[in-house]
């Protein structure tokens, strides 16, 4: 059975013993991959991180919202099912979940499907999107459910009394306020999604941290490579935070939350 390449680290050794030689010019040198400069490698990694995180977030947001809603439905079965989903995905390390999707899932499918899956050209990418998406969905679900539970009980009663169906009640009354309330924690879950894409380097996804590692392995300029990746993550964080502030101001309800 084939084992897939994982990014593993050799002990840190440098060719010279005396201190570290900085070389920021490294980014403008051609990489041995022959597809561009070292800077291009970082940019490709950044692009992969953003695409993976964006798609994983779409899954996390949709599935997480659905599970969060289930958790707040009346009755016993729906909340129980939602809790099971949340506990399942919250109590295993993301890395282990990715291994389950990548190594175990294709094996437990009917043989033909498993082989088809393993031969997909973007297997690592798809695994990362689905694995991180489901992992984050449990966290989004917790936030969405807490947002709904933070609303006064009477809101649901009022919507029901007006003749709205449960689906309409969630769509027009409960969710618009719940999302507003949990916008700040959802923003940090979005940023966690970006950070978590780095875990997918273990299944060979060429995301930002993996590319920084590759730059380091080719060029031995370890600290320049990691500094570039670090700056990229900080910029992502800054931009996302600013976007969230803007969104919060935009959807703020006039007169709501006054003391």
């Amino acid at each position: 059975m084939p084992t897939r390449p994982t990014t593993r680290t050799r002990p840190a050794t440098t060719s010279n013993g005396v201190g570290y030689h900085w070389n920021w010019g490294i980014f403008w040198e051609m990489s041995p991959e022959g597809t561009g400069t070292y800077l291009d490698m970082i940019v490709q990694g950044l692009r992969m991180t953003l695409i993976t995180a964006a798609l994983a977030w779409v899954i996390a947001f949709i599935v997480g919202s659905a599970i969060g809603v289930l958790r707040t439905l009346p009755g016993r079965m729906a909340p129980l099912a939602a809790s099971a989903w949340i506990e399942l995905f919250r109590n295993m390390p993301l890395l282990v979940q990715l291994f389950l999707w990548y190594f175990v899932f294709p094996e437990i499918l009917p043989a033909a499907w498993g082989i088809w899956l393993k031969q997909l050209p973007a297997a690592a990418f798809l695994t990362a999107v689905i694995g991180i998406g489901f992992f984050m969905s449990a966290r989004v679900a917790v936030q969405v459910a807490s947002g709904i539970e933070a609303l006064p009980q009477g809101q649901r009663a009022a919507a029901t009394a007006l003749g709205l169906t449960p689906a309409q009640t969630y769509r027009y009354v409960l969710l618009p306020m719940a999302y507003r309330i949990v916008l700040p924690p959802l923003t940090s879950e979005l940023l966690n999604t970006v950070k978590n894409t780095s875990v997918a380097l273990t299944i060979g996804l060429a995301e930002l941290t993996a590319r920084a590692r590759a730059v380091q392995e080719f060029s031995f300029q370890v600290f320049e490579a990691f500094t570039a990746a670090t700056l990229a993550y900080l910029v992502i964080n800054l931009l996302a935070t600013m976007a969230a502030r803007w969104l919060e101001a935009r959807v703020r309800v006039p007169g709501y939350g006054r003391a």
């Binding site: 680290t9 570290y20 590692r213 380091q216 670090t230 993550y233 900080l234």
Partner: peptide, 28 residues
């Protein structure tokens, strides 16, 4: 804002140099 994986790599490579600096050793 940093992923833990990146921080693990940072320190894996940085700690030998920090140790060198702290102890005044001649190599990492």
């Amino acid at each position: 804002p940093l992923p833990l994986v990146l921080v693990i790599f940072w320190f894996y490579f940085l700690v030998p140099y920090l140790g060198q600096w702290l102890t005044g050793a001649s190599r990492p």
